[in-house]
């Protein structure tokens, strides 16, 4: 049995906004349930994938782990995030800073906007070292160059003197990864780390992440993405999110070979898969992703589901273990 390093219990995060979806706008701020009642564990030495579309709550879950939800408009309304026995949500903002970057670090979708454009890479990286440890500048610089080299940045000694804008997207993401790895975190959260990059560069970055994980030993990665291909290539275990809830959770083999939730199987069927012949039209999921301000009361997927029953609209199914470590939230598997 592997050790749990992170345990998330019943996490709910809402965003308040004037709802301006279809039709009229509300006068008051109303809560949009971005994440509701999400519970899962992260084990040592695993890559956990969270897959979902826009509004599924995957990114909000990740931001909630480090308490990075901007408040207002967002708020974590309930839940516990237990990292090695400590509830991160109960910590003061001063205390949680010790965890951010050092124990748990995060890389973001847009490397360009995560780096400060008016500071040289050098200053930004040294700052990371100097803010957490008691290193002096020369030491920090040496460590930074070493990290950048490990992150595969060519000419690290020269590049470190440059401003972020003179690096390409791929190089910027390498810098972000280097910064995230500065303290050998036990958990790395990657929020769509390659979405903004070209495919060949995406392959480089994914390769780099696998290498680093292998070298670092017992560290874990939470990989957030909408791309099932990345999930298949990178992850050990997968959570499928939709409408702010976990709909299915399984190891990667079971998920792709035996998807249980209608949403998961429809997704797998609907994406054009390279190398597979398609007979004419693609399979599609009708309708669109639900709006977090206007979620259906029952199953979040029921309006688009081909197996919809009467009960699906009224009652939300529970997340149920069907086979070993394979959970699904669907009425098809109840009773």
């Amino acid at each position: 049995m592997k050790n749990k390093i992170l345990e998330i219990k019943n996490l709910s995060t809402v965003f308040y906004a004037k709802h301006s979806g279809q039709g009229k706008e509300t006068k008051e701020l109303i809560p949009g349930k971005a994440v509701s009642g999400v519970s899962f564990d992260v084990y040592e030495d695993e890559v956990l994938g969270i897959v979902g579309e826009s509004g599924s709550g995957k990114s909000v879950t990740a931001y909630s782990i480090l308490n990075l939800i901007p408040n207002p408009p967002g708020k974590i309304v309930s839940g516990e995030i237990i990292y090695r026995g400590i509830d991160l949500l109960k910590l003061s903002s001063e205390e949680i800073r010790k965890y951010r970057g050092a124990e748990i670090s995060m890389i973001f979708q847009e490397p360009g906007t995560s780096l400060n454009p008016v500071m040289r890479i050098e200053e930004q990286m040294c700052e990371v070292f100097m803010s957490h440890g008691k290193t002096d500048r020369a030491e920090a610089l040496k460590k930074s160059i070493e990290l950048l080299k490990r992150a595969g940045l060519p000419d690290a000694e020269k590049r470190i003197k440059e401003y972020p804008s003179s690096l390409s997207g791929g190089m910027q993401q390498r810098v972000m990864i280097a910064m995230a790895l500065a303290f050998r975190p036990s958990l790395l959260i990657a929020d769509e780390p390659t979405t903004a990059l070209d495919v060949t560069v995406q392959a480089q970055i994914l390769d780099l992440m696998s290498d680093i994980k292998r070298e670092n030993g017992k560290s874990s990665i939470i990989m957030i993405t909408h791309n099932l291909g990345i999930i298949a290539e990178m992850c050990d275990r997968v959570l499928v999110m939709y409408g702010g809830k976990i709909q299915e959770s399984a190891n990667v083999k079971d998920l792709f070979e035996n998807p249980l939730h209608p949403y998961t199987s429809a997704m797998i069927k609907s994406i054009p898969c390279f190398g597979k012949k398609h007979e004419g039209r693609l399979n599609t999921i009708p309708g669109m992703v639900p709006d977090i301000f206007n979620l259906p009361p029952g199953c979040k997927f029921c309006n688009r589901c081909e197996f919809k029953k009467d009960i699906c609209e009224k009652k939300e199914p529970e997340l149920k273990e069907i086979s070993k470590e394979h959970f699904v939230r669907c009425h098809l598997y109840e009773g």
Partner: peptide
């Protein structure tokens, strides 16, 4: 070779990484 394929493979395939 860079396209991530949404299929489970027990062996990670060899990719050409530029």
């Amino acid at each position: 070779s860079s396209i991530p394929v949404p299929e489970y493979k027990s062996e990670k395939r060899e990719r050409i990484i530029l």
